[in-house]
């Protein structure tokens, strides 16, 4: 643990592009998730076995959660929000593995996710109500609120990013300190707690993204 936890470790370069450990870990997570999905869904049957039933419960659970938050059919947002939750859980928890750093513990990954959420919110808003109709909602309830609303759009996305980054990074930082100070087995409860924190943070990030998207769709409709 000779480097700062806030620093990004560059593993190699692809031309001018530096490939950091977070990117490599993300690729590994992508490979794991895609391969696992392919293996799990290649032989789906009308009468599901346990694995298929679990998959259906997870997918439909996420879709139902999105529907409850946005009060609309959750399937259009399922690829974005479902992938967000699954990736965040995997990424947050993988930091507990020896020698692996969680991608979300570096600032670039939460920033990328926040950026995607930010773009998606406005994409769904514009698609649902048109550019002018969506832009008009920023001037409500009064025109004077326009700068504040725009600022709020940026700050809430920024807060999402910082919250995720801060929680995961701090958890890993504390866990590294405990391991360094107390030995190998003592930090196990802390690791369990860190896994729980990782799941909760993934849930919070996803739910906030769903709330923002639902607000973008629903606010304009209500108006």
């Amino acid at each position: 643990m000779g480097r700062s936890p806030l620093s990004t470790e560059v593993l190699f370069h692809l031309g001018p592009v530096a490939i950091t450990s977070a990117v490599v870990t993300t690729w590994a997570i992508m490979l794991l998730l895609v391969l696992g999905s392919w293996l799990a869904t290649r032989r789906l049957r009308p009468h599901p076995d346990r694995l298929q039933a679990m998959l259906e419960v997870v997918v439909m659970g996420i879709a139902d959660q999105i529907r409850e938050i946005t009060r609309k059919d959750g399937r259009p947002q399922l690829p974005l929000l479902g992938t967000l939750f699954i990736y965040l859980v995997t990424a947050n928890v993988c930091g507990l593995l020896p020698g692996v750093n969680a991608p979300t513990a570096t600032l670039e990954t939460p920033a990328a996710l926040a950026l995607i959420v930010f773009a998606s919110v406005h994409y769904y808003g514009v698609r649902a109500h048109g550019p002018l109709g969506y832009l008009a909602k920023f001037a409500k309830p009064k025109l004077i609120m326009l700068p504040l609303n725009i600022l709020s759009e940026i700050t809430r996305t920024f807060s999402m990013m910082v919250r995720l980054f801060g929680n995961v990074m701090s958890g890993e930082f504390v866990l590294a300190l405990v391991v360094a100070l107390a030995g190998l087995f003592l930090p196990i409860p802390l690791m369990v707690l860190e896994a729980l924190v990782g799941v909760v943070q993934a849930y919070i990030f996803t739910v906030l993204a769903a709330v923002f998207i639902g607000a973008a769709i629903g606010d304009t409709e209500a108006a």
């Binding site: 990004t8 001018p16 592009v17 530096a18 490939i19 950091t20 977070a22 990117v23 993300t26 690729w27 997570i29 992508m30 998730l33 895609v34 999905s37 392919w38 799990a40 869904t41 789906l44 049957r45 009308p46 599901p48 298929q52 998959l55 259906e56 997918v59 879709a63 399937r75 399922l78 690829p79 974005l80 479902g82 992938t83 967000l84 699954i86 990736y87 991608p103 570096t106 670039e108 990954t109 920033a111 990328a112 996710l113 950026l115 995607i116």
Partner: peptide, 30 residues
Amino acid sequence: DWSTLALQTVNFAVLAWLLYRFLYRPVLRM
């Protein structure tokens, strides 16, 4: 690191598409 930010953004988009292709769509179709 802006390049990492861009890579992670692309990675997530690709992952979303792949999961849609290999997870959500088959399960939802079934």
